[in-house]
Nucleic acid binder design. Structure first.
Length: 424
RNA sequence: AGAGAGUUGGCAGAGUGGUCGAAUGCGGUGGUCUUGAAAACCAUUGUACCGCGAGGUACCGGGGGUUCGAAUCCCUCACUCUCUGCCA
């Protein structure tokens, strides 16, 4: 969430940013925030004063009791009680105001950076560039959902029986491909300086609020009511929350972590066109990279992370393009986001395989994630993350793009992980 | 899962109703001394909110309660440890 101090110091810019996002009634909302904050401050001041009085009386009573002046002590109790009641009333008013303010702040998205193009849907995203050569497919080329059946490497029917739609089994060379991709991605991340972590895949409510999945995306997560835990939609949640509430030292920065987890998404209401095969699943595997950076370094880190993911796609010999997300498609927590899409030759369309986001201090403010610089000043940190990479669509593209009469050719870089060169 | 014991500042560890934001030790920072270092000595050393400031307020696992006054008493939740049980 945004800092109230930031909102009040950059009111015009914030309203402008919200308009860019097509946010409803930006002026009214921002004014309400500032009003609530003003009232909260005043009420808290009154409360503190009343409490100070009460504390003073309590000390006096203590001394009177000690020196045996019981009557005076009894008299003082009356006025202490009045102040105490007053402080109590004001306290609950402060909590009320804080609650209202926070609720409002949770609804306000991050402010898009200047370079973010204005647009409402993914069609308005800006294609920055394309890399790699689109393959020429044989005449009888098939989409991946046919290929996985032909080679019996992913089984949706089995998944339907055991769990339900969107939970496929990977079998034989298909399963081995998954393991190969995970190892490859993690090895590359480790080489790039990320610490490998294996986080829990269930998270508590506080973590959900910390990275912003709660409250707004509650319906997208699987919820385990018996234990009040959520299945993670992405490793971003547990990994970033490693640092929730921490005060780091400048010399410990940056923090760079990479982790592989299954990811779970209910995708409520979003089933329909374009979701055949591996294009959209309820459970999928992903390697995620997360960075905690000083504010002045986050922009450079964002670019470096994106380059890292592009390098992965290049090594896998997949044609890709880089998109600058428009204001309407940008996630609420992010101020800048690049998507990487791979060319899925038989489907003849681009598939999103990675989103690399810079959240500025928006998440850090929720997380209370700060650092103390070498001048002893504490400030909020910046958080970033990106998929490096999401597996099913990468697999789909490899299957489609590399299909030949002899079978599916495995990219060279993966062969040492698969121990086979072709799926046939 | 059952029984018991715990949770205090960066760490260790006192404190069982009043001037306790909290002894003491270690660690950290600054200084004295030294050619330099160590040792010793001196000083300093939590976070957040409000306030121009002086200063005020809150925080001793979380939440609630009793009391004029709570780290200290009560309730509740979470977590940790020990023993027993179960288990990859």
């Amino acid at each position: 969430m945004l800092l109230v101090s930031y909102i009040s110091e950059n009111k015009a810019e914030v309203i402008e940013g919200l308009k860019k996002r097509f946010f409803d009634e930006p002026e009214a909302t921002i004014n309400k925030v500032l009003e609530l904050d003003e009232e909260r401050r005043q009420t808290q001041k009154d409360r503190d004063d009343a409490q100070a009085e009460a504390n003073k009386s309590a000390k006096q009573i203590g001394m009177l009791m000690k020196s045996g002046q019981k009557d005076e002590a009894e008299a003082a109790k009356a006025s202490a009680a009045t102040n105490k009641q007053k402080a109590k009333d004001l306290s609950s008013r402060v909590s009320e105001l804080e609650g209202e303010l926070q609720k409002l702040l949770y609804q306000i998205p991050n402010i898009p950076r200047k370079q973010v193009p204005v647009g409402k849907t993914d069609e308005d995203n800006e294609v920055m560039y394309e890399r790699g050569e689109k393959p020429t497919l044989p005449e009888n080329a098939k989409p991946h959902w046919d290929l996985i059946e032909q080679y019996d490497i992913v089984d949706f029917e089995l998944g339907n029986k055991v769990t339900g739609a969107g939970f496929p089994f990977y079998k034989g060379k298909g399963a081995r491909m998954q393991r190969a991709l995970i190892s490859f991605f993690l090895d590359e991340a480790t080489d790039a300086g990320y610490m490998e972590v294996q986080p829990p895949i269930l998270i508590n409510e506080a973590s959900g609020y910390g990275t912003g999945q709660l409250p707004d995306k509650e319906g997208q997560m699987y919820y385990m009511g018996a234990d009040d835990l959520y299945l993670i939609p992405t490793a971003e949640v547990p990994i970033t929350n490693m640092f929730r509430g921490e005060l780091l030292q400048e010399n410990d920065l940056p923090k760079k972590m990479a982790g592989h987890t299954p990811c779970f998404r209910r995708e409520a209401g979003s089933w329909g066109a374009h979701v055949r095969g591996l294009n959209r699943l309820h459970q999928f595997d992903k390697v995620e990279i997360v960075e905690i950076q000083k504010p002045e370094d986050s922009e450079e880190a964002h670019e470096r992370m994106t380059k890292h993911v592009e390098m992965l796609l290049e090594k896998l010999e997949l044609p890709y393009r880089r998109l600058l997300l428009c204001s309407g498609d940008l996630g609420v927590n992010a101020n800048l986001c690049y998507d990487l899409e791979v060319w899925s030759a038989a489907q003849g369309r681009w598939l999103e395989v990675s989103s690399i986001s810079n959240f500025g201090n928006y998440q850090a403010n929720r997380l209370k994630l700060r650092y103390r610089d070498n001048n002893k000043k504490t400030s909020l940190l910046h958080t970033l993350n990106g998929s490096a990479l999401a597996l099913p669509r990468v697999l789909a593209a490899i299957l489609e793009n590399n299909q030949t009469e002899k079978g599916i050719m495995i990219p060279k870089v993966l062969q040492k992980y698969t121990n086979f060169e072709v799926i046939d």
